[in-house]
Amino acid sequence: MKKEIELVAMDIDGTILGKNKTLSERTKTVFQKAAEKGIHLVVASGRAVQAVPEEIRRLQGVEYVISSNGSSIFRLSDGQRIYEKDLTSDQIDALLAFYDGYSCPIEVFIQGHPYTSEAYYHEPEKFGADSLAAEYVRTTRCPVADIRQFIQKHKKEIEGVNFIVYDPELKKEMRSHLESFGGLYVTSSVPRYIEISHGDVCKRNALIWLNGFLGIPREHTVAFGDGENDLEMIQYAGIGVAMGNGTDGLKAAADVIARPCDEDGVARLLEEMLEI
């Protein structure tokens, strides 16, 4: 199944990182071989760029990171943010007014760095995080004493806002209200997150921009993902791939369904597509 491929865009969690949160040797080998063929490897994640594991950012061929669900594109060679679409000050004011009615933790991404309230940083387990997720929070987030005041101070430079909502009924209620605002992109990459960005944001729009920047047609692009926030990117790519562990909606929209992440689904399919 050899295809003419110039760019591979890939989500992280549940796509190239499985339950143990490390890249398999098979995946690293395939990425190296793809890079040697001159193929652009692009990370496309809901994570802030500074929360992307260093072993991924250092991979040969990984030149760009689409981060914060498409709010930003960072060029790794010099750390420059080459594409940006932040929330507006008015949107931040509306989100803070909405947040006053709830007591859940909150996160914000600013220039690639994630910040969160101290209570969540110190005890993420109280808010539904398992041991691996708790370690991720403590090793990637910067704790802030007064997160509301911090957001107000930086409201002209916020890529995205996350509400951490463990109760599924409360999450459903909050998400419904947020979606009624208009002008916002609201998604969820993991069950306890509501992720909010500017309405023009999604991984697809960032990938469209990057394809234009690099002069690569969509037909020569393959994209891999597993979750709701990958849907638009999967629909856009010349070859949209859902992981075997992906959501039903994503699988229905995909051109191809790969083996699950923990079975090296991305690596296996790229070996077939690129004959490597």
Score class of each variant (00 low, 15 high):
Met1Thr: 09
Lys2Met: 15
Glu4Ser: 15
Glu6Thr: 06
Leu7Gly: 06
Ala9Thr: 01
Met10Gln: 07
Met10Ala: 03
Thr22His: 15
Leu23Cys: 10
Leu23Thr: 12
Leu23Phe: 09
Thr27Ala: 07
Gln32Val: 09
Gln32Arg: 11
Ala35Lys: 01
Glu36Asn: 02
Glu36Lys: 06
Gly38Arg: 01
Ile39Val: 02
Ile39Met: 03
Ala48Val: 10
Ala48Phe: 10
Val49His: 07
Val49Trp: 05
Pro53Thr: 10
Glu54Pro: 09
Ile56His: 12
Leu59Cys: 07
Val62Ser: 13
Val65Leu: 07
Val65His: 06
Ser67Thr: 11
Ser68Gln: 09
Phe74Tyr: 13
Arg75Gln: 05
Leu76Lys: 05
Ser77Cys: 14
Asp78Ser: 11
Gln80Ile: 15
Arg81Tyr: 10
Arg81Glu: 13
Ile82Thr: 10
Glu84Val: 14
Ile92Cys: 15
Asp93Gly: 14
Ala94Gly: 12
Ala94Lys: 13
Ala97Cys: 13
Phe98Cys: 05
Asp100Asn: 10
Gly101Tyr: 02
Gly101Leu: 05
Ser103Met: 04
Cys104Tyr: 00
Glu107Ser: 00
Gln111Ile: 07
Gly112Tyr: 02
His113Thr: 14
Thr116Asp: 10
Tyr120Lys: 00
His122Lys: 06
Glu125Pro: 04
Lys126Glu: 14
Phe127Ile: 03
Ala129Val: 01
Arg141Lys: 05
Cys142Asn: 12
Val144Arg: 08
Asp146Trp: 06
Asp146Gly: 06
Asp146Tyr: 03
Asp146Gln: 03
Asp146Thr: 08
Ile147Phe: 00
Arg148Phe: 09
Phe150Val: 11
Lys153Val: 14
Lys156Asn: 07
Glu157Gly: 13
Glu157Pro: 11
Ile164Trp: 02
Glu169Trp: 14
Glu169Lys: 15
Leu170Ile: 10
Lys171Tyr: 06
Lys171Asp: 06
Gly183Lys: 13
Gly183Gln: 14
Gly183Glu: 14
Val186Ser: 08
Thr187Asp: 12
Val190Asp: 09
Pro191Ala: 04
Tyr193Phe: 02
Glu195Phe: 03
His198Ser: 10
Asp200Trp: 07
Lys203Ile: 15
Ala206Lys: 05
Leu207Ser: 00
Ile208Leu: 00
Trp209Ala: 14
Leu210Ala: 03
Leu210His: 01
Gly212Val: 00
Gly212Cys: 03
Leu214Ala: 06
Glu219Gly: 14
Glu219Thr: 12
His220Ser: 14
Ala223Met: 02
Glu232Ser: 04
Glu232Tyr: 05
Met233Gly: 01
Ile239Pro: 13
Lys251Gln: 06
Ala254Cys: 15
Asp255Gly: 10
Asp255Leu: 08
Ile257Arg: 11
Val266Pro: 09
Ala267Gln: 11
Ala267Val: 07
Glu271Asn: 06
Glu272Pro: 04
Glu272Ser: 02
Leu274Asp: 04
Ile276Pro: 11
